[in-house]
Amino acid sequence: DTINITLPDGKTLTLTVTPEFTVKELAEEIARRLGLSPEDIKDTHNGKTLDPSLTLAEYGITPGSTITLEIK
């Protein structure tokens, strides 16, 4: 299953994830792909900052969802 990550420059990154991924694991994968530190990444969905300890499923993030990435 894939989700879309909207980057600060407007580009989109597509990642393969499972509903059990935590937001922290997602940030780590994004950081790895972009050459950043996971601590520099802030993920938001529907205007809410995502708690790193919760899973994508707990936020109702499903395949095809879009998450907005902010760099701290």
Rank of each mutant, 00 (worst) to 15 (best):
S37V: 12
I61D: 00
G60V: 01
T22G: 03
P8T: 11
E29M: 08
E39W: 05
L34Y: 06
T16A: 13
T16S: 13
T62Y: 14
K24R: 14
G64V: 02
S65I: 09
T6A: 14
H45K: 06
T66M: 06
D43Q: 15
E70C: 08
E29H: 08
A31S: 08
D51T: 03
L69W: 05
S65W: 05
P52V: 13
K48E: 15
L69S: 02
E25S: 05
P19H: 06
D51M: 03
D40W: 14
I5H: 01
I67H: 04
T62R: 07
I30C: 04
E28M: 10
T62P: 05
D43N: 15
I30F: 03
T55Y: 03
T18Y: 11
T68G: 07
A31I: 05
K42E: 11
E39P: 14
T66Y: 06
T2Q: 10
E58D: 11
F21Q: 12
P8Q: 10
T66E: 08
A31F: 09
G35M: 05
E28H: 07
L7Q: 02
G60D: 04
A27F: 15
I41Y: 08
G10D: 03
E28W: 07
P63M: 08
G60K: 02
E20G: 08
D1H: 12
E25Y: 04
P52Y: 11
A31Y: 09
E29N: 04
L13N: 01
T6S: 13
E20W: 12
T16V: 12
P19E: 06
E39K: 12
L7M: 10
I61Y: 10
D40V: 14
P19T: 06
L69V: 14
I41H: 02
E20V: 08
L50K: 03
A27T: 14
T18G: 09
L26A: 02
T22H: 01
E70H: 10
P19D: 07
I67K: 00
T12F: 10
K11H: 11
T22P: 01
V23W: 14
K72Y: 11
G64K: 01
L54P: 02
L69N: 01
L15Y: 02
R33D: 03
H45D: 11
D40C: 10
T2H: 10
K48C: 15
L7I: 05
A57W: 10
T68Q: 13
T66G: 03
I41C: 05
H45V: 14
I5N: 01
K11V: 11
I3E: 00
E25L: 06
G35A: 04
L7E: 01
S65L: 06
F21S: 12
T44V: 13
E58H: 10
T22A: 01
P63H: 10
T2A: 08
L56V: 03
L13Y: 09
K48G: 12
Y59N: 14
G64P: 02
E39M: 15
I41E: 01
D51F: 03
T55N: 03
T12H: 09
R33G: 04
G47L: 14
G47S: 03
V17I: 13
S53A: 11
T18E: 05
I71G: 05
K42S: 13
T44C: 12
I71C: 07
T16W: 12
T44I: 13
L34S: 05
T66W: 08
L15M: 10
E29P: 00
K72T: 13
R32A: 10
A57P: 03
I5P: 01
E70V: 11
F21C: 10
T49M: 07
K72Q: 12
L7W: 06
G64A: 02
T49G: 08
V23G: 03
I67R: 00
L34P: 00
P19Q: 07
D9F: 07
T14F: 09
P38F: 15
A57F: 11
E25I: 03
T68Y: 14
E70F: 08
T62K: 09
T22S: 04
D9E: 05
P52H: 11
H45E: 12
D51E: 06
I41D: 01
D9P: 02
K48T: 15
T14I: 13
P8A: 10
R32W: 10
E25C: 06
S53W: 05
P63W: 03
L26T: 01
I71S: 06
K42L: 15
I67G: 01
T6C: 13
L13F: 14
E20P: 03
T22W: 01
T12K: 09
